[in-house]
């Protein structure tokens, strides 16, 4: 029997993903590209919010979308239909995106220099939470049809997302959804976060959302200048 030894390691368990994410972050700092990582349940309206967002911003900014999905090119097609470049990342069953996968697909997509890159993660409130993709910030979406107890049920994502976007707010009159309760839960998990209420159907909140993106892009450019 050999000798037993103990060494202290003290490294993050996702160190390798972190290294890839750090390289992406460095590259995007160089190009002054604002990068968002959008995380939510399936069907909460990530692609619909992006459609409304790119329609408003595409004439003034160079935009692109990376669409993470288990299967189908459907989401990327929806963005391309608006004249904005999109690339589908098919994970083939994996429940989240990793930085290396983003890097690889970014090379394949060859978007050129961008002002804003949207990364739509696989629809899932749990697994994508732990994976840094090199983004400037995470955005958590919560549609009003999902129920008003979700932030406390999924504290991982709602505590990490710098911005929480409530979607489908036009349906609020028809649902027993306590918006204040959701705002308070998010405030507990993430006191410094931003909370927005939107509807892609009525247009509610989209000005504030797009203004936030413009502000963050300008701040990143100013910091890098």
């Amino acid at each position: 029997m050999g000798e037993s030894k103990v060494v202290r390691v003290q490294r993050n368990a996702l160190e390798i993903n972190r290294r890839h994410a750090a390289r992406l972050r460095e590259a995007w700092r160089g190009t002054g590209t604002l990068v968002l990582n959008l995380i939510s349940s399936p069907g909460s309206g990530k692609t619909t919010l992006l459609e409304a967002t790119v329609a408003r911003l595409k004439d003034r900014f160079r935009l692109a979308v990376l669409e993470g999905d288990v299967a189908t090119e459907r989401d990327a097609d929806r963005i391309r239909a608006l004249g904005v470049p999109a690339h589908q990342i098919l994970t083939g069953g994996a429940c989240h995106l990793e930085a290396r996968l983003v890097q690889k697909n970014l090379e394949a997509a060859d978007f050129g220099e961008l002002d804003i890159l949207f990364i739509e993660n696989v629809g899932n409130l749990i697994c994508p939470t732990s994976y840094d993709l090199g983004e400037d910030f995470k955005v958590a979406l919560l549609s009003v049809t999902e129920g008003d107890d979700k932030p406390f049920k999924y504290p991982g994502i709602f505590s990490r997302a710098e911005v929480t976007v409530v979607t489908k707010a036009d349906l609020l009159p028809h649902l027993p959804f306590d918006l204040d309760a959701v705002r308070e839960q998010v405030g507990t998990l993430n006191p410094r976060g931003t909370f927005l209420v939107t509807s892609a159907t009525s247009g509610e909140g989209l000005d504030a959302w797009c203004a936030l993106l413009e502000e963050r892009l300008a701040a990143k450019r100013a910091a890098g200048a």
């Binding site: 029997m1 030894k5 202290r8 003290q10």
Partner: peptide
Amino acid sequence: DVLELAFI
């Protein structure tokens, strides 16, 4: 975090 490793 990986804190400590015991190996033979």
